[in-house]
Simulated assay, not measured.
Amino acid sequence: MNNSFIDLMKKRRTIYALGKNVSQSKEEISTVIKEAVKESPTAFNNQSTRAVILFGDSSDRVWDITIDVLRGIIKDDAAFEQSKQRVSSFKNGIGTILYFTDSNDVEQSKKDFAMYADNIYDWSEQGIGSAQYSVWAALASNNIGANIQHYNPIIDDKIKEAFDIPENWVLRAEMPFGSIENPAGGRSEMNDDDRFKVFEN
C-alpha cells in the first residue's frame, strides 16, 4: 500500500522551537491554511470552523494579550515568569492561527437535524479538530513547524476585542507556527493490543 500519507503524519509533530526562517510567502502560507480548512470534513457539511491567520505584530499581539491575562491570574511571581517565558517563545515563529467555532452554525445545525441535536456540538468539535490536524500536516509538508495551545477561554474577550471577532465565534485553540529550529523529542506509544481490535471475518 501507499504509505506517503502515513509518512506525512509521522512528520507532523509538536514543534516548540520555532523560528522565522521560512521560504514561503505569507500569501502562500495563508493559501495552504485556507485550503486545508476547506478540505476538512464536518458533520452534515456544516462548515462551522473559522480561522484567523495572523503574521508579524498581529501574531505577537496574541501572546502579549495572553501574558497580560496570565499576570492577573498567576499570583506567584516565579510561576508567572515560567509561564511568561513559555508564552513569549511562541513569538519566535512567523505567525499564529486562531481556531474558532461559529456557534450560530452549530445552533442552526441543531435545528436542521433535530434528530441529532444532542450530538451536533460534539461533532463540531470533531470538525475543528480535523481542521487543526489538516493544517498542521499541510504546514509540516512544507517544512513549517507548529504546536497547539489552549489559552481559551481566559483570553477570549480580549482576543475578540483586539481582532474584531464576531461574538458568535468561540475560540477553541491557538496554533503558533514557523520554521523548525529544533526537531520534536521522542514519544512513547501504547501497545497495539491495548489500542486496537481487528476482526477479519
Results as ranks from 00 to 15, higher is better:
N3Y: 09
N3A: 11
I6L: 15
I6H: 10
D7Y: 11
R12S: 12
T14L: 14
I15A: 02
Y16C: 05
A17T: 14
G19N: 12
N21E: 15
V22D: 06
V22K: 04
S23A: 14
Q24A: 14
Q24N: 09
K26D: 06
S30P: 10
S30W: 07
S30D: 10
K34N: 11
K34P: 01
V37E: 01
V37M: 10
V37I: 11
V37L: 11
K38N: 08
E39T: 03
S40M: 04
F44S: 08
F44C: 08
N45P: 03
N45I: 05
N46I: 14
T49S: 12
T49L: 10
A51I: 10
L54W: 12
D57I: 12
V62T: 09
W63G: 07
I67W: 13
I67E: 07
V69A: 13
L70S: 01
L70C: 06
R71Q: 13
G72Q: 06
I73V: 15
I74Y: 10
D76H: 12
D77A: 15
A79I: 14
E81N: 14
K84N: 07
V87A: 05
S88R: 09
S89F: 07
F90G: 07
K91Q: 14
N92Q: 08
G95T: 04
G95Q: 02
G95K: 00
T96D: 15
T96L: 07
F100A: 14
D102F: 10
N104V: 02
D105S: 06
V106R: 01
V106L: 05
Q108K: 08
S109C: 05
K110M: 13
K111G: 00
A114M: 03
Y116D: 12
A117D: 00
D118G: 11
I120T: 12
Y121E: 01
S124M: 02
E125H: 00
E125V: 00
G129L: 00
G129S: 06
S130C: 13
Q132I: 10
S134K: 00
A137E: 05
A138N: 07
N143M: 04
I144K: 05
Q149C: 06
H150G: 05
N152G: 06
P153H: 11
P153D: 04
I154A: 11
I154W: 09
I155S: 11
D156K: 13
K160E: 10
A162W: 15
A162S: 14
D164M: 09
P166K: 09
N168M: 06
L171W: 03
F177T: 12
S179C: 09
N182K: 14
N182M: 07
G185V: 01
R187S: 02
E189P: 00
M190T: 15
D193M: 08
R195W: 06
K197D: 07
V198Q: 03
F199W: 07
E200L: 04
E200Y: 08
